[in-house]
Design a protein around this nucleic acid. Structure first.
Lengths: 188, 188
DNA sequence: GTCGAAAACTGTAACAGTTACATTTATGGA
DNA sequence: TCCATAAATGTAACTGTTACAGTTTTCGAC
């Protein structure tokens, strides 16, 4: 049922993202202008911004996919598993991928570009809100429950650490262990 | 010992911040241009940006003060108190002030302006890094300790909640109680 | 196929924050 | 008093983003 129109839009979007990603990888995020990207992608600058809300979003464009994954993971967790367990598994499997060379370059680019880091965090905030809402639902609590919010915030903190850490796998493990153990505070 | 030069700089900085804040409060953050602020403050646009790194920073300009407060509070905590206790007290006393009318308007402006929210979060991230480092020191752990980072992240989350919540006091209390209790996770 | 409405795309120019640059002014110390 | 240094200036650029007005493409009904 996917009309030509929608398929074409999807293709254009992908094309723009591809071109933008390639150019940015080659010349650095600040080394390419949006006018240059537009030209290389054979579209007008106006069209660029009708597909992406910002230059950053042309480079980081798989965030909605992860958000859906987070929400679905919690909602569809098997009986007998806790929300925290499935989230841990998701983070491990998802960011285990970061060890591959292509991903490494991508992460390095984000890490070394302030405006990309900012964008990355903004996305994290959206994910956190989504997770908080889903956790609240999972635990039969009100939508804006403080408790669900605190947990979501703690869990999503792993994301930020992953971006900054050089040894992703260990960091995920260490962080989730702390959280699962119940965040014990030193008595001093 | 404060030379004329430094006093004058401080005065100019304060003056710019005052003018910017007034104009922004009157006409909204996006309703004022930096050129307009510069004119009203009787300085050139260039000078504006030699004092502040961005338009946002002209409006939110007391963040370094809070950062010092956070760090000092942890470092100078009395014997017998935990880092978490003194942080809680700081948040309560500091953000209890948010109930005053002037602060309410300020918060409302930040809340309703995306670019100010972004800036606010960026500041929060800096604070978090500072707190994590200080906690690590307080607990005799390595500077980039994962555990200290997780705790700092959890505690600084209160900031974000405060900005979004309508009942600041209760939120601080509720959140710290959850944290102090050790973030117990539901078994599902 | 044809036609008309809706949607996508275009080119250009503007706008706003920010920075570079070359110049001028003020300050502090010898 | 004089000079090196730091601060401030005015202007013009640069860059992401948006407004606008006009053109092309797609869709669905006939």
């Amino acid at each position: 049922m996917a009309g030509l129109r929608e398929r074409k839009k999807a293709a254009t979007r992908q094309h723009i993202s591809d071109v933008a990603t390639r150019l940015i990888m080659e010349k650095g995020f600040d080394g390419v202008g949006v006018r240059e990207i537009a030209e290389a992608a054979q579209v007008s600058p106006t069209t660029l911004f009708s597909y992406f809300p910002s230059k950053e979003a042309m480079f980081i464009d798989r965030d909605e996919e992860l958000e859906r994954q987070l929400v679905d993971t919690i909602r569809d967790r098997p009986d007998g598993t806790t929300a925290l367990q499935v989230l841990r598994d998701l983070f491990v499997s998802r960011f285990g991928l970061l060890d591959h060379p292509g991903s490494r370059d991508f992460v390095a680019m984000v890490r070394s570009t302030p405006s990309l880091m900012e964008h990355w965090r903004q996305i994290g905030m959206r994910h956190q809100v989504a997770v908080a809402r889903e956790l609240a639902a999972a635990w039969d609590r009100p939508e804006d429950d403080t408790y669900a919010w605190v947990v979501a915030h703690a869990v999503l903190g792993v994301r930020e650490q992953l971006m900054m850490a050089d040894a992703p796998q260990q960091v995920v493990d260490a962080t989730f262990e702390i959280l699962e153990r119940g965040l014990p505070f030193p008595s001093r």
